[in-house]
Design a binder for these strands. Sequence first.
DNA 1: TGAATGAGAACGAGCGTTCACTCTCATAGC
DNA 2: GCTATGAGAGTGAACGCTCGTTCTCATTCA
Lengths: 205, 205
Amino acid sequence: MASNVAPEPKPDRRTSILDAAERCFGRAGFHQASMHEICLEAGMSPGNLYRYFPSKETLIAGIAERNRNDAAESFALAAETENFFEGLQQLARHHLVDRSEHEVALCTEIMAESRRNPAIAKLFHDIEVDVKARIRAMLVRAAERGEINGAIDFDNAATMLMVLADGMSWRRAADPAFNAESMLPLIFQMVRCLLTQPAPTETTP
Amino acid sequence: MASNVAPEPKPDRRTSILDAAERCFGRAGFHQASMHEICLEAGMSPGNLYRYFPSKETLIAGIAERNRNDAAESFALAAETENFFEGLQQLARHHLVDRSEHEVALCTEIMAESRRNPAIAKLFHDIEVDVKARIRAMLVRAAERGEINGAIDFDNAATMLMVLADGMSWRRAADPAFNAESMLPLIFQMVRCLLTQPAPTETTP
DNA sequence: TGAATGAGAACGAGCGTTCACTCTCATAGC
DNA sequence: GCTATGAGAGTGAACGCTCGTTCTCATTCA
């Protein structure tokens, strides 16, 4: 991380700018946070900041990319556990409970932005696909080990787990007083049911 | 709802402006849609539009209020069914599947805005509280009828249902290709489990 | 010395908003 | 019947301001 081979002389400068921007964006939103504000937060003049990021757009993209990559990475770690439900529990705690309010706020911002900024949308979508593939792989492995029902639709089940995670995120964003931890037992009750019971008769009345 | 006692001569003008604003906001976001754009969409000059809404802020608040009220209202209707699971199914279809992509987009915008605009936050929170109370009442009534387990924690269960709904919303927002309808069977499998099975042993390891 | 690094005033564009004005039309006065 | 009156709907150029960005110039370091 410290010494790059080729042409990245001081990555710390860039990350500290991203840190400052993240604070401002989380506080005020992508389009209400001004570059002056970010410069102030980063302790840096506009002229200098623009030597590291050529536009506000790239700053937004940088934040979004870093945030999404962090999520995907933390995910990859927990996906490697031997016991499926234990891995899932660890994942849930990290992703649903431990995240700061600030991170949750940033997520809502990225989400809203990705609906109108194609570059962000692509980033967002690619990582979503990656995460879903990982969850699916976790499920398949768990089924092979006999931990969950092998007859379920793995794609739908993976999507459902993402729905649950998203729901917890949105709830945290909507209500600062929401106690994510207290919901975990119910979440796991439902997930166990989802993954171990036979699929319901697919009636669509 | 109507603030003035007597002289509300042409409410259609206000709603048609709100309609135009909703289209613009959904397309570009609250802070990237310009008043000029909204004026154009409404077929009206800025000067005239400002006779109906004194600021962009009030326009945003108007949109958010209308949107939230619509959601709460559609909710109140379905909550009155006799059979609990039937009412829930109807509610789910209306709220999770039938909503247009545009409405979903607007929701992400309102959510992001409510994290930094206290007026919107209050609006948002009040309606959330109202909806949760309604769901809770539905659950209590269902328990009295013996449709669901009477020993569950009604508050947590109501919150969990909202988590599910939020998750579906967010998933739709994140992925335009997401097929909400195909998830309904799984949702209902999980909800049945949540509401009819005994609560899990509350281990927090 | 020369390149890298940094500062901060300045710029033009675009924003939300205002203001001076016109148009429309029902009523009043003759 | 015809014009004067006045109130409200509607207009759009213009304003002040803030924004993202750039430019010029200083400082630091090797």
